[in-house]
Amino acid sequence: MSVQPIVLPDADAVGDAVATTILDRMAATDGAHFLLGCPSGRTGMPAYRALARHAARGADLSRLVIVMMDDYIVPGASGTFQRVDAGLPYSCLGFAQRKILGPIAEVSALAPAEIWVPDPADPAGYDEVIAAAGGIDLFLLASGAGDGHIAFNQPGTPRDARTHVTPLGEATRRDNMGTFPEFTRLAMVPTHGVTVGVDTIAASSREVIMVICGEHKREAYARITAAEQYEPDWPATVVVECKNPTLIADHAAALTEK
C-alpha cells in the first residue's frame, strides 16, 4: 500500500510538524519513557531544533529516549569493529549528544536522559533492548538521496534484516560527504557501519514518519511515493510496510510550487 504524502512549504515547516507530532504522541502516553528513533544528519535537524524551541517554552522531554539508527565503525582489536570516537564530528553518538540532546539541555532541565546506539560487538542485543522496552514509539526516517539507503541498510538488504554490521557502498558514503562536511574526500568516510535492520524499523516501531526535504531528495520522493511494497534496491521503501506511516516532504523535494 502506498503512502500519501503531506507536502509543506519548506524544511522548517516540516520540522515544526514533526516536533508537534512527537509532543502530541508523548502527551497521549503515560509510560516511564518514550522511545524516539532518530537519524543523524541534515534530515532530522529542523525537527530537533523545533524540539529545543518547545523545551525552551516549558515542554517536558525528560521521558524521551533517543534511539539512534546507526553509527560508523572502524576496525578495533583482534579484528573486531568498534564505534568511531564520539568526539569526531561524524560520530552518530556524538551527533545525538551535540545536536539533539545538547540544545534541549541548554534550555531546559527536563531534557532526555538517555541516548541509545547499536553496539557492533553485539548487534542483536540492540533489538533485544528495544523489544524489552516495549518497542519504538515513533521512528523518524530518512532516505539516502543517491541509493535509497535507510539508516545504513544498503541496496539489496533483505526485508527481514535485523540490526547488523554492514559494509557501506560508495553511493552511501558520497551521500554522507554532504551530511558531514568534515568529509572532504571519499577516503575519509568509514567503509563500515552498524545499523538497525529494515525489519527492526518495520517490526519494532508503532509509528514512523519519513521526512524528505530538498531538491537533492527528488528521486527519493518519487521512489517512495510510488512504492507499493518493500523494494530491496531502494531500502527506504520499507516505510510503506511500517505501522502507521506518514510521509512529510517539502516543496523542493516534491517538485511543487510554494
Score class of each variant (00 low, 15 high):
Ala32Val: 14
Glu128Gln: 15
Val194Gly: 00
Cys213Asn: 13
Arg173Trp: 07
Tyr230Ser: 03
Arg98Trp: 07
Ala50Ile: 13
Glu114Trp: 14
Asp24Gln: 01
Cys213Phe: 03
Ser2Lys: 08
Pro120Ser: 10
Glu182Ala: 15
Asp85Trp: 00
Gly15Asp: 02
Val7Leu: 02
Ser91Met: 12
Pro167Lys: 07
Thr225Asn: 08
Asp30Pro: 00
Gln97Val: 06
Pro120Lys: 03
Met177Ala: 06
Ile6Ala: 10
Ser2Thr: 08
Thr195Ala: 10
Gly125Trp: 12
Gly94Met: 10
Leu36His: 08
Glu241Ile: 04
Gly41Lys: 13
Pro9Asp: 05
Thr195Pro: 06
Glu182Tyr: 11
Asp147Met: 03
Ile212Leu: 15
Ala52Tyr: 02
Lys258Glu: 11
Gly144Asn: 04
Asn153Glu: 03
Pro120Phe: 14
Val14Pro: 00
Gly148Gln: 03
Thr166Gln: 08
Gly31Val: 06
Ala236Cys: 01
Gly58Trp: 13
Met68Arg: 02
Ala55Gln: 10
Pro155Val: 11
Thr200His: 03
Ile201Lys: 02
Asp10Met: 13
Asn176Thr: 03
Pro89Asn: 02
Ser204Ile: 00
Arg218Cys: 02
Asn176Tyr: 09
Arg173Gly: 07
His251Met: 13
Pro118Leu: 05
Lys99Phe: 03
Thr225Gln: 09
Leu64Asn: 02
Val67Asp: 05
Asp10His: 14
Tyr230Lys: 03
Gly37Gln: 04
Ala105Phe: 06
Ala254Phe: 12
Pro39His: 11
Val117Gly: 01
Ala47Thr: 14
Leu35Trp: 09
Ala161Asp: 03
Leu64Pro: 01
Asn244Thr: 12
Met188Lys: 07
Leu64Asp: 00
Pro181Val: 03
Gly87Tyr: 05
Val107Ala: 12
Ile209Thr: 10
Leu35Phe: 03
Gln82Ile: 15
Pro155Gly: 05
Ala86Gln: 15
Trp234Gly: 11
Arg185Met: 05
Ile22Phe: 10
Ile115Met: 02
Tyr221Thr: 04
Asp175Ile: 06
Ile104Glu: 09
Lys99His: 03
Thr166Ala: 07
Glu241Val: 09
Gln229Trp: 06
Pro112Asn: 09
Arg206Cys: 01
Met210His: 05
Val240Cys: 10
Ala236Ser: 15
Ala226Phe: 03
Met69Asp: 13
Gln82Leu: 10
Arg218Ala: 11
Val14Ser: 11
Ala50Leu: 06
Ser204Ala: 11
Asp71Phe: 08
Asp122Leu: 07
Arg159Leu: 15
Arg223Thr: 15
Leu64Lys: 06
Met26Val: 01
Thr157Asn: 05
Arg49Tyr: 05
Pro123Arg: 10
Val84Leu: 13
Tyr72Gly: 01
Arg218Lys: 14
Phe183Glu: 08
Thr184Ser: 14
His164Phe: 15
Thr195Leu: 08
Ile136His: 00
Leu255Gly: 08
Asp10Tyr: 12
Ala56Leu: 02
Ala59Glu: 07
Ser143His: 04
Leu140Asn: 07
Gly169Thr: 00
Ser40Asp: 01
Glu207Ile: 01
Pro103Glu: 12
Met69Gln: 13
Met26Tyr: 06
Asp127Ala: 11
Ile150Leu: 10
Ala227Met: 04
Glu170Val: 05
Phe139Leu: 12
Asp10Ser: 07
Leu138Asp: 07
Gln97Phe: 02
Ile248Arg: 07
Asp147Val: 04
Ala249Glu: 13
Ala109Gln: 13
Arg63Gly: 09
Met1Pro: 04
Gly148Tyr: 15
